[in-house]
Write a protein that binds this DNA or RNA. Sequence first.
RNA 1: GCGCCAGUAGCUCAGUGGAUAGAGCAACGGCCUUCUAAGCCGUUGGUCGCUGGUUCGAUCCCAGCCUGGCGCGCCA
Length: 556
Amino acid sequence: MNLKTEISRLVSRAVESAVRDGAFDDIFGDIDPKVEYPREMKFGDYSTPIALESARLLRRSPMEIATGLARYIGTDPRMSSIEVVKPGFINMFLSTGFLYDNLKEIVRLGADYGSSSKQTPRRINIEFVSANPTGPLNIVSARAAAVGDTIANLMEFAGDVVDREFYVNDYGNQVSLLGRSVLARIREQKGESVEFPEDGYHGAYIADIAAHIAEDYEREMSAIAGEDELVDFLALKAIEYNLAGQRRDLEEFNVRFKTWFSERTLHEKGSVNETLDLLEKANGVYADEGKSMFRSTDYNDDKDRVLVRDDGRPTYFLADIAYHREKFERGYDLAIDIWGPDHHGHITRLLGAMKSLGFDGKRLNILISQQVNLLMEGETVKMSKRLGQFSTMRDLIDEIGVDVARYFFVMRSLESHLDFDLTLAKKESSENPVFYLQYAHARICSLFREAEKRGMTYDPSSADPAYLDNEESILLMKHLAKFPEEMEDAAEKCEPHRVATFLMKVAQAFHKFYTEHRILTDDRAMSVTYLLLCDAVRTVMANGLTLLGVSAPDQM
RNA sequence: GCGCCAGUAGCUCAGUGGAUAGAGCAACGGCCUUCUAAGCCGUUGGUCGCUGGUUCGAUCCCAGCCUGGCGCGCCA
């Protein structure tokens, strides 16, 4: 259990005891004790406004309640003091003894510090990126990749079992459009004059794919008789080619999917039709001019949505319902989807359909990752696949590297529209926030190398907490103690940017500490104590950077 | 017209209904004979879009406006 949770338990128990003693009315026990971080250090490390919140209910003054309750919180070994202040806050201060013990705990646990294990871990499926297999991944996909993977990391760290999944849209109109675009390019390359399909894929990469396929599958292609069959074949090969490229880029971005789920298989094994039957049984479907409609207006949608067209072809919506049904039937307790902003309108209807099928809506959590505005020299770059300039994830990786890219995508909250200025990201690469974090880690590694060079033995058991009784050390230790709860919070709320914000605070506190205190000196006991602190900082930085998918270098 | 997201320092953005609203970058001024200066310290910088409401207390919740972006397909 993390520190913050333990402290709110402490307050809860105090309330219980106080009520039992008759010090307060029974209704006091109904109040959920909030524990928060005070804005200022002089107000302690944790604070509860419970007395302010319950004053009206108890018909007593906040100060009176706070003073009465503080007595029951009493002396806890983790606290150095508990104060009751002005309007009625109860402020709690962590003891340096506890913080010091925690330091040793951090070093002992290493990569496990901050992680938790659950008695009954949730099985979670997180689906993200899921770009169309019609070309290379773009910047929006890159953001989704960074965000989704970090959320997955956080949830695994919090003790759940997480599967990363990529949904492959290898079915429908655009697939044959892709096939026809490739066919047109192949014929063009043979010198035939062809009309390029309307709404076809014009990108230069299509020509590359066409050339590859024409070379690799010459024999197979000549054996195919009909034009439609040829288009199907080419579409399939083009998808394979694109998927391989997407997978390669994602792996280089430190993102590995467990499952690449093909939409086509849903249609082939009848799961789509089966889903329609189930929706009909749930009375969610009616016929309208030869179409099957879903009553999504029963679930707050603006209008009912088509499931099957009048020519009998299922819509993407129906397949999507089948897909999410399939996910739940695979036994996941929670399915998380990360969608682009252009899909937000689909949330209501999909949730409605899942509820109609009898699934608990809480099992599906759809997150919207807002758009990315790509800037160069402060100017917006239009994201067209035809323009070759920095529109792909591959270009981004080549240009600024995985560490910088992943950090930039995750440092902002999901909902905020992200301005990504490439010129700035590149130009400022030496003063980039991500280097600030990595530098803290590298600096500590360097300290240990230097200590070894000087023949100092690092034996934490000979450390002496008395040396840590200074402002910089204490602040640093306090941050380190909050790592587990901050990460748990980030996981629970699906807010990966909290990791970046937290690490920034730790790095800041460390750089300050480093400047103020000389670590390697003739005072061996002091050196060892400081090294212990540094070791703990290094552990937390490494664990946090790993969650972000960013490397923690030994030297820079 | 409807829906979603955003509006906080010059720029990019954090901020759990609580106490004197923060960081990075940019600007300016300091700090390396000693463990990594990719660092530290200081200064400048704010009607938290506007107007009401809810309450002991609102940047945060609610309503209505204003501005910007995105979406409103039987494409995926």
